[in-house]
């Protein structure tokens, strides 16, 4: 079996007496979309923050691309190749769409201590940025101020920025939220092709998208992974039905 790109090894996180993550072990393998689902308050956000580097687990380790990244911060993990999109869009709102994506290309390039040549005339950065915008279908809006975009468009823009990082894995926190039926369907199609480039750890509430896309699904309840398996296995799992789908087994 191929080595997973991302692996959490029994990570545990407490907030006071509350166990937000309990012994969570997950793997993201090359070429797959691994969906993380769970009811509100299950600890999905806490888990994402530990994987992205905003929070350090109290116990356990996180491996990324063969390296122990448990103690690394968000910047180092992004540089290591983790491409993240946020549940609530986090963009430079005064910038144009293109400027935001060029910032992504700049982040990947790394040459930020250059003071004299204009960034928006840097052909390599702009070409990379425009290619990414084209892929998510935002190229026509490249000169629009980001603050003037709809929520769904901001989501697409976040994905475009993540693309410019050419990450080794994507970490996407509810990319479908606020997209509407059409947009959601289009993004589902796009993510479907994206997994060949880099695997995706996908937190999503849109169950249609999850069951359409995910190679494997992990279900998080009260900070604990109660099941991991294919869509069919998860659908058939009694614990999941009880805990998550709210049915009496």
């Amino acid at each position: 079996m191929t080595e997973p790109i991302l692996r959490t090894e029994s990570i545990t996180k407490y907030f006071g007496a509350v166990k937000a993550s309990q012994d969570v072990s997950l793997e993201l393998r090359p070429g797959e979309i691994h969906a993380l689902i769970g009811p509100n308050g299950a600890g999905k956000s806490t888990l994402i923050k530990q994987i992205a580097g905003n929070l350090t687990p109290d116990a356990g380790r996180i491996w990324f691309d063969g390296r122990d990244v448990t103690r690394l911060g968000t910047v180092a993990r992004a540089r290591a190749g983790l491409g993240r999109t946020f549940q609530i869009s986090s963009l430079a709102m005064e910038y144009t769409v293109l400027q935001n994506v060029v910032l992504g290309a700049l982040g990947r390039d790394g040459g930020v201590m250059r003071f004299l040549l204009p960034a928006m005339k840097d052909k390599a950065l702009v070409a990379e940025a425009e290619a990414a915008l084209d892929r998510v279908g935002l190229i026509d809006l490249k000169s629009t101020r980001t603050a003037d975009l709809s929520h769904g468009q901001r989501r697409q823009l976040e994905v475009a920025v993540a693309l410019t990082l050419r990450p080794k894995a994507f970490l996407m926190d509810e990319p479908m939220a606020g997209l509407g039926a059409g947009g959601s369907k289009r993004l589902t199609g796009f993510l479907d092709t994206l997994r060949a480039e880099a695997p995706i750890l996908l937190v999503e509430h849109d169950m249609d998208a999850v069951f359409a896309l995910a190679d494997r699904i992990s279900v998080l309840v009260y900070g604990e992974v109660i099941a991991t398996g294919t869509a069919a296995e998860i659908r058939a799992n009694r614990d999941v039905r009880t805990a998550y789908l709210g049915e009496d087994a």
């Binding site: 911060g73 968000t74 910047v75 992004a78 540089r79 993240r84 946020f86 986090s90 963009l91 430079a92 709102m93 935001n100 910032l103 992504g104 700049l106 982040g107 990947r108 790394g110 930020v112 920025v161 410019t164 990082l165």
Partner: peptide, 10 residues
């Protein structure tokens, strides 16, 4: 948005 800058690895 400093979070945005961190997310692109800067």
């Amino acid at each position: 948005n400093s979070e945005r800058v961190q997310t692109v690895g800067l």
